[in-house]
Design a protein around this nucleic acid. Structure first.
Lengths: 241, 241
DNA sequence: GGGGAGAGATGCCGC
DNA sequence: GCGGCATTTCTCCCC
């Protein structure tokens, strides 16, 4: 049988604490939440991250960020997990009514995930393969920082017209078009030139966003994000999945 | 000692499966990832959501959405968790090298979280208290749907000028200002009128976004999002935290 | 620490 | 299903 004192001790030792409990939860900070009684999974990590998961869905129902202080408080028959983040003015209180299990493993993990196929890979790919944008395109720079944001790819088209490319690894939407428009306007005004082209590079675009894009005189180029991991000696392909 | 067969059985029974294992992980789908050996926490929920957590941070390092099929596959001495989502063309493979613990609780939870202080609460509050926007403001509607997005609050100012309010519960940034501009332009063109005001209502705004806002002739109104939970009989305040 | 923007975003609601 | 958008977004990077 798990006792509340076991959880208390594990938190004090800053172990990875994983338990399940029937509970109610209240949170107040950036918003205010209330969760009625039910069984949930709690994870308190060594960096003091707290996650509370219900039995469905990817996102935690409640959570606290690192730099939170966690305490077990007993008030007569009732036990609480009280988590407080002074700096962020957030606190959470869970009334723990029945503990189902507790695990406090010592976990060793130095690895960092390697990821391929993000927007950076896409702009790198277009910079290295400018003919994919259009024949004669000459890239000048990547991640050009302007006061109105930073531009993915920047260059000249075959006619020598300054061209801004905004990459999206997913369906481009209104806000992607807005972003491109903001950059084009900023470059026009800061460089004092009249003609700047805008190209949206993405695997897809919503029909409304495409209409808006064309209304602003911009064009869409269908580009798939590349998916190649940097080679490393221990790395295996997924081909044999 | 936990055996791989115990995990296999728990997955088949569609229980909530929580275990820790030294492992390597590879994923391919929307992107491609590789994670070298380390100890991680695995959660497989009854809705087939998979979460893999490292010892730091709020976000899972790898995950699969509901409608994924999970299988334990043994290949000689080596055991894998293979998770495949056909519809989303995603798959994940974890080589499980040492299981530290396994828990397979039956969890009952019908509760849904109640949340106060979101953007909807903010626009409701402004609709009900238009003097908070400015004296003489007369709201017309909330969540007006336009082809270019939906408008939070819509009304007339004291001079009878059509006014659009965009609410943000956090620091308003460039994209919030972009959004407001998109709505104002859309209303101008669809109603064929020249003068439409735009107001950004938020607790804070980045300095650059404020400059851009003012350049476009819009104004910022500092408004805090309200934090009041709807009363319910079982609900208790957080005053005694 | 603030600003800016991506994310294998997730989740919600509306059509 | 797609579209549009908020999120206690989270995370990363750069200034």
């Amino acid at each position: 049988m798990v006792s509340i004192e076991d959880i208390e001790q594990a938190i004090k030792e800053r172990r990875t604490v994983i338990f399940s409990s029937r509970c109610t939860i209240q949170y107040e900070g950036r918003a205010k939440t209330h969760l009625e009684e039910g069984d949930r999974i709690f994870i308190i990590k060594p960096d003091s991250t707290l996650l509370v998961h219900q039995v469905t869905g990817s996102s935690p129902v409640n959570y606290m960020k690192p730099t939170t202080v966690h305490k077990i408080v007993k008030d007569g028959e009732v036990a609480y997990l009280k988590s407080e983040n002074i700096r962020q003015k957030e606190h959470l209180r869970a009334e723990l009514r029945q503990i189902h299990f507790l695990e406090t493993p010592m976990l060793k993990d130095e690895a960092k995930i390697q990821l391929a196929g993000n927007e950076k890979d896409m702009s790198d790919f277009l910079y290295a393969n400018p003919e994919m944008v259009e024949p004669g395109f000459t890239p000048l720079s990547r991640e050009e920082h302007t006061k109105y944001g930073f531009i993915d790819v920047f260059g000249y088209d075959t006619n020598g017209v300054l061209t801004i490319i905004e990459c999206k690894r997913y369906n481009a939407d209104f806000s992607a078009v807005d972003q491109l428009r903001r950059y084009v306007e900023k470059i026009k005004s800061s460089k004092g030139i009249d003609q700047v082209r805008g190209i949206m590079a993405s695997p897809a675009i919503t029909s409304n966003a495409k209409t808006m894009l064309e209304n602003w005189g911009f064009t869409w180029k269908k580009i798939e994000p590349p998916k190649k991991l940097t080679k490393s000696k221990n790395q295996k392909g997924l081909g044999d999945f």
